[in-house]
C-alpha cells in the first residue's frame, strides 16, 4: 500500500458515498445514469469474485464488499425505490457497445486464459468505459448538478491516482500490470474534458453547464 493508492481508494469510496447520499437525501436520481451504475455493478461483481478464492487483507476484503454492496444499493435506488425519478429518456447510451467489445477484448488480450482471470480482465476493460453513459447523459442534457459533478470528480480522480500508484510500484517494487495501466490511462483520459469544466466552472461556484 502506498499513499497514492490509499488516497485513490478513499476518493473512490467518497464518490460512492456522495452518490448514494445524494440520491437518498433528495429522494431522487435525476441526472444520474442508471446504465453507468449497472455497468459498475457488473464491474465489481466480475472483478471481486476472487473474494471467494484468495484472502489479501482485511482492508482489501472490506473495501471489495463495500464496493459491491454500494453498487447494488445504488442500482436498487435507481431502478426500484426511486424509479419514478429516473430520467431514462436521457439515459440512452447503448451499453451493448461497451459490454460486447469488453468481452471480446478480455478473451483476446489477457494474462492467462482462465475463467477468473478473464473475468478480472473484462472488469478492467469495462470499468475504463463504464462512465460513458453518465458523461453522455450530462452532454445530452447540457448540465449537471454540483453534487453530481463532485461525484464525477472523485470517481475520475481515483483512477488518476492509481496511475501514480502504478508508477510508484514500478519504480519501488518493479511491479506492473500493462492491462490495468493501459485501461486506467484510457479511463482517466475520458474524464479530462470533465475535469477541465469542473475546475473552471464548478470550483468557481458556477453550475456545470455545457455551451449550447
Amino acid at each position: 500500500m502506498n499513499i497514492f493508492r490509499l488516497i485513490g481508494d478513499l476518493s473512490h469510496l467518497l464518490a460512492i458515498i456522495i452518490l448514494l447520499r445524494k440520491i437518498w437525501k433528495s429522494r431522487s436520481c435525476a441526472g444520474i445514469s442508471g446504465k453507468s451504475q449497472l455497468l459498475f455493478a457488473i464491474v465489481y461483481t466480475s472483478r471481486y469474485l476472487d473474494l471467494l478464492t484468495v484472502y489479501v487483507s482485511m482492508y482489501n476484503t472490506l473495501m471489495k464488499l463495500v464496493f459491491i454492496a454500494a453498487s447494488y444499493a445504488t442500482c436498487y435506488l435507481i431502478y426500484l425505490k426511486f424509479k419514478a425519478t429516473y430520467d431514462h429518456n436521457h439515459d440512452t447510451f447503448r451499453i451493448e457497445f461497451l459490454l460486447v467489445p469488453a468481452v471480446i477484448l478480455a478473451l483476446l488480450i489477457n494474462h492467462d486464459f482462465m475463467a477468473l482471470e478473464i473475468l478480472w480482465t473484462f472488469s478492467i476493460y469495462l470499468e475504463s468505459v463504464a462512465i460513458l453513459p453518465q458523461l453522455f447523459m450530462v452532454s445530452k442534457t447540457g448540465e449537471a448538478e454540483s453534487i453530481t459533478s463532485h461525484y464525477l470528480f472523485a470517481l475520475g480522480s481515483y483512477r488518476g491516482l492509481y496511475i501514480l500508484n502504478w508508477i510508484y510500484r514500478y519504480a519501488m517494487e518493479d511491479h506492473y500490470d500493462l492491462i490495468a495501466i493501459v485501461a486506467g490511462v484510457v479511463q482517466t483520459v475520458l474524464y479530462c474534458d470533465f475535469f477541465y469544466l469542473y475546475i473552471t466552472k464548478v470550483l468557481r461556484g458556477k453550475k456545470l453547464q455545457l455551451p449550447a
Binding site: D50, S57, D112
Partner: peptide, 10 residues
C-alpha cells in the same frame, strides 16, 4: 507471481 500480486489492488 503476477496473478496474486495484482489482486491486492481494488
Amino acid at each position: 507471481g503476477k496473478y496474486s500480486n495484482k489482486k491486492d489492488e481494488l
